[in-house]
Amino acid sequence: MAEARTAERAAQGEGHPSGDERFALLDKTLRKARYQQDQLIEVLHVAQDLFGHLSEDILIYLARQLKLPPSRVYGVATFYHLFSFTAPGRHSATVCMGTACFVKGAEEIVQQLEAAHDVRSGQTTEDGELTVSTARCVGSCGLAPVVVVDGVVTSHQTAESTLAHVGEVLAKEPTEAST
């Protein structure tokens, strides 16, 4: 099995057989963590930053490197909501659902975004262009309701303004440029 070979080579200190440079960076983090099992969450964070999401390959690799049972790694990774297991869309719109934003109508924004782009919160559109998600308070309650579009916080949003803004962002970049 390919996975087993991966693990063997990894155990011999050869790193990941794919030769993907990002694994070299991951190895660096692992060394810095001295392969301590309690660093699993930190290492998962780094892996997600490097790869965008946690694929099965990465989870197996980390399990073998930290000498943890795969089910344990899976259990930890799926417990925490910030870890994602599918590739994110090229653009993202995250609606804050903290209390302040909720009180000021964030729910309506989510519903309209979902409807307009035919996608459920937490998922990516079929063309891989947009990921719509909700967040538990981004901490800008004075600016509620808040929507984070491609990492930029936009404040005092309405459903209309969010839709318009997301539309602009999606239109700006032609698809082939980002493939």
Partner: peptide
């Protein structure tokens, strides 16, 4: 510093 990962 230890960071969480999204669990209230």
């Amino acid at each position: 510093v230890r960071i969480g990962a999204g669990a209230f």
